[in-house]
């Protein structure tokens, strides 16, 4: 750490604040102000006077909690939330399970093609969600899909990948495809940070690679697993671009399929920014509660494990 020299003491003292000016200004303008404004809007509503024509006919008034009670009793929002929970229950475990598996496999001794496979699995990270959804969307279309073609060739029934239950799997697959590589890299990095002596000792004790993976590697990367879980939950609850992109390809995706789509619909199609603001605040609070609840549960679990 720096010690303050006698000369230029003033400059050293004020320098960090000066360096932080751009970030602070941007934070206030594009984070704090919008959040405050959203909260403000969520407690207000527009009242239409008379016929609602002319200037001053619409007035913004205090609405108390009515936007919130409306939002919480909005069945579309609730259904959207349930859909997202179902979708997340597929995406998060599958994506992180695959990421952990691939990271452990990459960490195996004497592996061939390590560089190639690592880069290939990471590649989807560089592809926008919209384009990923678009590519998979075509691969789900009956006339194009190679999967349905194979099923047909084998004489098996062809499910409609863009409807009902399979639609969840199809959407989940896009998220898993896009997110596994990045999470794999995070886990792999923390695997490589484990000191080699630990494995040496385990090996002398006669542990197999599988035992080392299960008993040493996984517990030691638990912190990065928790972190990836945390961010995956947040990302999942905010899914927007993938279902929005798939929408033109199927009639089964409503404009309010996910809660965020519902917010967009209310804000820009129904022009009810107050309802949209209240929903956005609820989604933000629910996201934070869920992700921090998970973090807390995970932490207390780890602490228990430590004391044993």
């Amino acid at each position: 750490m720096t010690r303050t020299p006698r000369r230029r003491a003033y400059g050293v003292k004020s320098a960090p604040y000066a360096f932080l000016v751009p970030a602070t200004v941007l934070f206030l303008l594009f984070f704090a102000l919008p959040i405050g404004y959203a909260v403000h809007l969520s407690f207000r509503r527009t009242e239409v006077k008379g016929l609602g024509l002319g200037k001053g006919a619409r007035e913004e008034i205090w609405a108390g909690l009515s936007n919130y009670t409306d939002a919480l009793s909005d069945s579309e929002l609730l259904h959207g939330a349930l859909r997202i929970l179902g979708y997340g229950a597929i995406v998060v475990p599958v994506m992180l399970g695959l990421a952990l598996l691939f990271a452990l496999l990459l960490d195996t001794d004497g592996l061939r093609l390590r560089g190639f496979t690592r880069l290939a699995i990471f590649l989807p990270y560089a592809i926008p969600g919209v384009i990923a959804a678009l590519m998979w969307g075509f691969l789900y279309l009956p006339d194009v899909s190679p999967f349905l073609y194979l099923l047909d060739a084998m004489g098996l029934p062809q499910p409609d990948l863009l409807d009902g239950g399979p639609l969840y799997l199809s959407l989940a697959n896009i998220a898993v495809w896009g997110g596994t590589g990045f999470n794999m890299i995070v886990i792999y990095t923390s695997l490589r940070a484990i000191p080699a002596e630990i494995f040496e000792a385990a090996r002398l004790d006669g542990c197999s690679q599988l035992q080392i993976a299960l008993r040493i590697k996984i517990p030691m990367v638990a912190p990065s697993l928790i972190l990836t879980f945390f961010f995956s939950i947040i990302a999942t609850l905010q899914v927007f671009s993938e279902p929005t992109t798939l929408k033109p390809l199927t009639n089964s995706l409503s404009t309010t399929w996910s809660p965020l789509m519902n917010v967009y619909q209310d804000a820009f199609v129904n022009n009810d920014i107050h309802a949209a603001a209240a929903q956005a605040v609820i989604i933000a609070v629910a996201t934070l509660a869920l992700s921090f609840g998970f973090l807390k549960a995970a932490n207390s679990r780890t602490k228990q494990g430590d004391s044993r």
């Binding site: 984070f31 102000l33 947040i234 927007f240 603001a277 933000a284 996201t287």
Partner: peptide
């Protein structure tokens, strides 16, 4: 903490502002 804010709670008021 900005990381945790859902983009939509930011994007809609950002648009209005």
């Amino acid at each position: 903490a900005g990381v945790l804010m859902p983009p939509v709670i930011l994007a809609v008021p950002q648009y209005l502002l």
